[in-house]
Amino acid sequence: MRGYAHVYPRDHINTDEIIPARYLNTDDREELARHALEDLDPGFVGKVKWGDFIVAGENFGCGSSREHAVWAIQGVGVGAVLAESFARIFFRNAINTGFPAIECKGISRKVEDGDELEVDLEAGVVRNLSKGEEYKFSPFPDFALEIMKAGGLLEYLRGREG
């Protein structure tokens, strides 16, 4: 995966900022995507390109269990979120949807807005092509990788039932 970084170094970016509840009267993913990060950065949807990355601080996605948060940022084309850490329900939702939520210590201080990044999920490496740096992240547990490879939890479940 290759794309540009949108850096929000703050901690505790919550689901109300990722997709405000005023839009939860629908589960239409295209509609949700139009409001991704609206209360954090109203300009985000206008500037994000397909395959770009969100880079953030600790506890990204805290708050509500709304999977709409994952759908909104996935729907607007974000390839992965790279954060210092994730809130647990967001992380589960991401894995279950087959969306990479990558925990990478120090990343919010090393990457600058607009840096071009390449993410290698198998190798557990983020390459900063703009700066010529590499950052390692802990690879996903096997179980999570299997779900993500299957394309999500339901596909995994169905595949297992064979």
Partner: peptide, 14 residues
């Protein structure tokens, strides 16, 4: 514990 919609789908099913 709280879960998202995909988890919910999985548990409703299985």
């Amino acid at each position: 514990t709280g879960i998202g919609s995909t988890d919910l789908a999985a548990v409703l099913y299985s």
